[in-house]
Design a binder for these strands. Structure first.
Lengths: 330, 330
DNA sequence: AGGGGGTACTAGCTCGCGCAAGGTACGATT
DNA sequence: AATCGTACCTTGCGCGAGCTAGTACCCCCT
């Protein structure tokens, strides 16, 4: 299947010439183009000859001709993916493939130009919401299909049950454990700023709703002394429970508390978010929130397809969106 | 930069028309084409106008015209990537970008069509050797640049001194801290088996060389009671220092020790590998090995670039390969 | 005045494919 | 006999950019 033309790639024109028919016909057959009638005999001849010659459509040419790359870029968070998550991505990938799309996964790193600029995907879809800078950057590459959609007024991901549930569970859990004065540990990292704000608001509202006092919110940066300062002042102010933005922040806070000779959860209880595998290793093991990544992932795949068609985000929410993982830190 | 043409993408022709010059000139300027003389004035005008209009070259069109996608596909193993590996990849990605290439990472899953068929990369490069079926499949997609080449030698980054240095440093450090009876904590995960074996051998050899006793090697699996068992038996056997495969394993061991009421490093010292950021957060903070990620990433990138040019795998080794990070756990 | 040799560009073909619009042959209908 | 309809296929343009082979102009030298 390869010894014929010395190295040059087989094109649709080669298939056509070899059969003595026009290139368009080959295209129609291979694309199952609707609105074209092709005799069964020709159909078979084309398909066989294409296979015999080892014809593969040239992706770039297709993308150029139809104006779509048929690539969907899935942006992953920068932490190790659990097994179930990876499996789900594989599933989503297969699902999308049947629709003629390729799923490319991507982890953002600051060192290099984001992949959406060079890959020209039809959709960029994030497992986590994008920061404003990221949205800006994606838009600037001429990509209009971004999921989750950054709606100007009420961002869906800031109000959607799937996102709200986590922080609310964190607060409820602390209250259930008897804490009445709680604090929020926000990420110092600028890229997580807007995401942090969102979660803080949810926590604040929930605290209000449950009749708790003011929620003392502080930014935690592992690089400086902010963890130490925050812990000291929290304890002085009578805070006994800390809701952390994620597991890493929770770990940093816990760490700072332990180094000050405080007991966790005795003097200060800490709950994280995301169920990072590291959280289980820590002493004390970190209580946290596990998101229904699989459900979310499936939803995202569907959303991606709909986004390509210009349709809206599907309505179905994953059912079990967030669950509490009780461990030693609370 | 966007309000001019309603939605349509800006092409090089737009830039040219807007300046009243030919499209070719725009191309020459933007590609810094050698062998073409362009006046400095025109150069600047083109560059400014391109920026003003928000011009982005159409990747697919470029790929079609020059016959190269400028995509390098890095095939990853199907297991959670250690922190250091993710950094290598980020590093390589940045390096390749400067050369005008995009690095796309990919984990093979059986459920879907392999990405090399639809992405048309210039090179497919694997962290692990490919199976024969895989090589066959890649070849069938018309891709000739495959690394590691089926029957060439193993890539340098899999055997070179860069890999040996880390484990040796771990052992040396423990000895320096006065430990004479050490153990090795291997990953339980089957997929890391061969890596674990490799590092264990290095540790064993180094221990022999330094005149230490037998190295007690045990597999650690976070999911079962192997950490507890290992720690107990190690301590009973008089082991005082543990060399861990990576920081995660080190953390798990530390954790198990603490939970048994042992002091770290008092009763058992533990040293990790890879300098995962989580290691610094732990109490006690984890001593570890920091790899020269920049060098390794560069090597990976160079290998890929050379493959594009049809050249062979480079021989050069990264120079400063591994350094010891002293923290509280030893 | 007629080259010769730069410099600074432009015209136009090419890549492989999708797809709209246009044939053509042949039997059926008026 | 002329027209129509349909099944089947072809011609040819366009996608956006790379790049070769010019061309027009100017300066300098004999």
């Amino acid at each position: 299947m390869s010894t014929e033309n010395k190295g040059r790639r087989v094109t649709a024109a080669d298939v056509a010439k070899s059969l003595g028919i026009s290139r368009a016909t080959v295209g129609f057959v291979l694309n199952k183009t609707r609105g074209q009638t092709i005799s069964e005999a020709t159909r078979k001849r084309v398909i066989n000859e294409a296979a015999r010659l080892g014809y593969r459509p040239h992706t770039a040419a297709q993308a150029l001709a139809r104006g779509r790359s048929r690539i969907i870029l899935l942006v992953l968070p920068d932490w190790p993916l659990e097994y179930s998550m990876r499996r789900h991505i594989a599933e989503a990938s297969g699902f999308l493939e049947e629709a003629g799309y390729s799923l490319v996964t991507y982890t953002i790193h600051e060192t290099s130009r984001p992949l959406w600029e060079s890959l020209d995907p039809d959709v960029v879809i994030g497992l986590l919401p994008f920061s404003e800078e990221e949205v800006e950057s994606i838009r600037a590459s001429g990509i209009t299909n971004i999921v989750p959609v950054p709606d100007a007024h009420t961002p869906a991901w800031q109000t959607g049950p799937s996102i709200v549930a986590g922080p609310e569970l964190q607060v409820e859990h602390l209250v259930e454990r008897g804490h009445r004065k709680i604090a929020f540990a926000a990420p110092g990292d600028n890229r997580l700023r807007s995401f942090g704000e969102a979660r803080r608001n949810i926590v604040t509202n929930k605290a209000l709703e449950l009749g708790l006092g003011e929620v003392d919110c502080r930014q935690i940066d592992r690089q400086d002394d902010s963890p130490q300062v925050a812990v000291r002042e929290w304890v002085n102010a009578g805070v006994t429970g800390v809701v952390a933005f994620n597991d890493e922040i929770a770990a940093v806070v816990t760490s700072a508390a332990l180094r000050q000779g405080l007991a966790v959860p005795g003097d200060l209880a800490v709950i994280g978010h995301d169920d990072d595998p590291w959280g289980e290793i820590l002493v004390p093991a970190l209580s946290t929130i596990r998101m229904d990544v699989e459900g979310l992932g499936r939803l995202l795949a569907l959303t991606a397809l709909n986004a390509v068609d210009g349709r809206d985000v599907p309505q179905g929410e994953p059912n079990a969106v967030a669950t509490l993982v009780r461990r030693a830190s609370t």
